[in-house]
Design a protein around this nucleic acid. Structure first.
Lengths: 192, 192
DNA sequence: GCGCTTAGGTGATCTACATCACATTCTGCA
DNA sequence: TGCAGAATGTGATGTAGATCACCTAAGCGC
């Protein structure tokens, strides 16, 4: 499947769009390719766009005190990512996005999203649904943070994304779980 | 201001609705009154509705192992609350909602929300925007959990909701911050 | 191939916070 | 008005995970 087909099948799961409507929608997306390690959004940038992942894997992360990195999201194919706080509030990026592997994405500007939402009711429906999913996932992760210890969160993560274990270096998994790489290392070496 | 006016001014900040459209929308809300301590959603319930707070204060919480309570949200006037996971997925409640003080709410069923979103584009727009706010708040709280220690989170909470300090018993604030009540007590008695 | 950088493992030590135990208010209500 | 139960304070002790220090192995540019 090419990028257009992937996006189409993703959106049609939730919204009813005619072929003409989808083509019109799609004409607002810009396909982009990135290499492993390339930055898409860096702290301090103006944020104008959000990104739909077609292939590869991105991470959205926050760096505190110039030292510690926390990963908010691994963005796999059919996931959307950006610094949504900066995007909606027209502020500078505090969250960065870069590529864990080579990646293809479809880029949509905030202005175009809002325009499309105004023009096509079903597009607004789609984006409501999508945000809703994100909200529920975020709330679930928050609860998991409060309720579970590191080991339980680690197992939860691997159950949710089995691919991640091989795809992603372990120190990034630690940064997602919010623990030090040493603790993570001890954790899964102990349980053998 | 009465309940209808409060909801109207809340919604009109984001969506353009004619008076007729708003009246039609409002006709789907059921006003309800609760006493301090009353439960609105209990674990295991079927969840059919979400709630818009007109006055008073609710809490949405999760109880683990029948022992520890974690508060996901204090719902103050003009906030919405429910077990959204259960509401959208038609599963039983894992999150409970009850009243910290006497409260008036407006109750909207999931079916009616979806119907209204289909019928009136601007209503769908409003709910997209609302969910978006919730998503950003949840993500911010997640980052705060990973990045800050208890003391910083406590001060952040009081900066965000100054009323809370007097309105809400301290052990509930501890349950929101995800620390034991003892730790919280030591924390703000030490800093004098 | 050589060296440099990055990833990852492991021990020793430190610390924030949980947990347990008990004392002390406060508060609603019979 | 008096008392049961909730809310809160505070000491003693235990522990998960951070931090520091150092080591090995793997990837990559030249």
């Amino acid at each position: 499947m090419n990028a257009k087909e992937i996006l189409k099948s993703h959106i049609l799961k939730t919204a009813q769009l005619t072929d003409e409507q989808f083509d019109y929608l799609f004409s607002h997306f810009k396909p982009l390719s990135f290499k492993k390690g390339q930055a898409i959004i860096s702290e301090g940038d103006k944020v104008e766009n959000e990104y739909f992942v077609v292939s590869g894997c991105l991470k959205a992360f926050f760096i505190n005190d110039e030292i510690k990195m926390y990963i908010l999201q691994f963005a796999m194919p059919t996931w959307w990512t950006s610094d949504y706080g900066a995007l909606y509030n027209h502020t500078r990026a505090t969250i960065s996005v870069d590529c864990i592997s080579d990646a293809e994405v479809l880029c949509l500007s905030n202005d175009d999203r809002e325009k499309l939402c105004r023009e096509i009711h079903q597009v607004e429906h789609f984006f409501r649904w999508r945000t809703n999913r994100g909200y529920l996932a975020s709330q679930k992760r928050l609860l998991s943070f409060m309720n579970n210890d590191t080991k339980a969160r680690y197992e939860e993560l691997l159950a949710l994304y089995p691919q991640l274990y091989n795809l992603v270096p372990k120190h990034l998994i630690a940064a997602y779980l919010g623990v030090s790489r040493e603790t993570l290392s001890r954790l899964y070496n102990a349980q053998k």
